[in-house]
Computed example of a mutant assay.
Amino acid sequence: MYKSHFGLREIPFSITPDTSYFFLFATFQAALNTLLVAAKNGEGFIKITGEVGTGKTMLCRKFMATLGSDFFTAYIPNPLLDPASLMRAVADELEAPANQDPHQLLKSINHRLLDLARQGKRVLLCIDEAQALPLETMEALRLLSNLETEKRKLLQIVLFGQPELDIKLARNDIRQLAQRITFHYHLRPLNRQEIRIYIAHRLAVAGCQRNNLFTPAALSTLYLCSHGIPRLLNVLANKALMLSFGEGKQQVGLRQVLLAANDTLGSVSLLSARHWFSRLSLGVLVLAFISVWVYFK
């Protein structure tokens, strides 16, 4: 690939969540603070929402890694499960016997939670992609959250999901669960300045010694084409680097980002590469870009 060409130790723009690349922008700092405060509070459900690709899974992993030894965390990445399957998944995460009938399974989970409480542990169940939870499984979660001592809840549940999760929670038939959400936060996309910092941060973590690998025009175009969504930004930046490498260039410019955007579903394609590059001169293309950049500035 292009690592040695650009002086990198590793690929900087992978879409796999890697907490070594986590950076505390304002929206992530606020969300992480909400999670930590809520976890120490110990009551109710916690909800984090955000559009596809805004970094919910990365935030979830960073949150679990940040918690101290007095917390025991369980993680379910795919909650598209019926109630019985969810209970078995929870039991497995809690290291409790899972191959039992529903009644005994609930007893095993309760006993395990009581054992962890006696050890001084707070237990957090983090559910990613929570918008995929079936309604009957949401009700099972609510009932699971009823497990408690006279002093506190034995299990706290954190939901990470897309905005569709809010639509489900607005339903009248699961209003009891919605009323138990005591803390919530919605992740916003990155702004123009944050994108520049984001690109520089990921390049530095990957070992880049340069501060001008992406031209100012390329960075502005990444902002326009990615909507400020980190996952889209990673895809576009990675493709732009590959295009520059393929052309033998040492820097990523406007052209490479535009071509990457034109080839990426979900991004804003400021042009159709075939149309523009076959019919317009480079000068007209640059003027068109500058007009768009000034408009959005």
Score class of each variant (00 low, 15 high):
M1V: 11
L8P: 04
P12T: 13
F13C: 02
I15M: 06
T16E: 13
P17D: 01
S20Y: 09
S20F: 00
F22E: 07
F28Q: 07
F28M: 14
A31Q: 09
N33A: 14
G44C: 11
I46W: 07
I48M: 08
G50P: 03
V52A: 09
V52F: 02
T57I: 00
T57H: 13
C60Y: 00
T66L: 01
D70I: 12
F71T: 09
F71N: 04
F72Y: 13
Y75C: 08
Y75H: 07
P83S: 13
L86C: 07
R88L: 05
A89M: 02
V90W: 05
V90R: 00
D92P: 11
E93W: 01
A96E: 06
N99P: 07
Q100W: 07
H103C: 11
L106W: 12
L106K: 04
S108D: 14
I109G: 06
I109F: 12
I109V: 04
L116Q: 02
L125K: 02
D128P: 12
L133F: 08
L135I: 15
A140V: 07
L143S: 02
T149H: 07
K153I: 11
V158S: 01
L159N: 11
L159T: 00
Q162A: 07
P163C: 12
E164F: 05
L165M: 01
D166M: 00
I167Y: 05
R175Y: 05
Q176M: 10
R180N: 01
T182Y: 03
H186S: 15
L190I: 03
R192G: 08
E194G: 02
R210I: 03
F214C: 10
F214L: 14
A218F: 06
T221H: 04
L222Q: 01
L224V: 13
C225K: 09
C225T: 15
S226Q: 08
R231M: 07
R231S: 00
L232E: 02
N234P: 04
L241P: 02
M242A: 08
L243P: 05
G246S: 14
V252L: 12
G253N: 13
R255N: 10
N262H: 03
G266T: 06
S267T: 07
V268L: 14
S269Q: 11
L271G: 08
S272T: 12
S272W: 05
S278I: 03
R279Y: 05
L282I: 03
G283A: 05
I290H: 15
S291T: 00
S291F: 08
V292Q: 00
V292F: 04
W293E: 15
W293P: 03
F296I: 01
F296G: 11
K297D: 08
K297E: 07
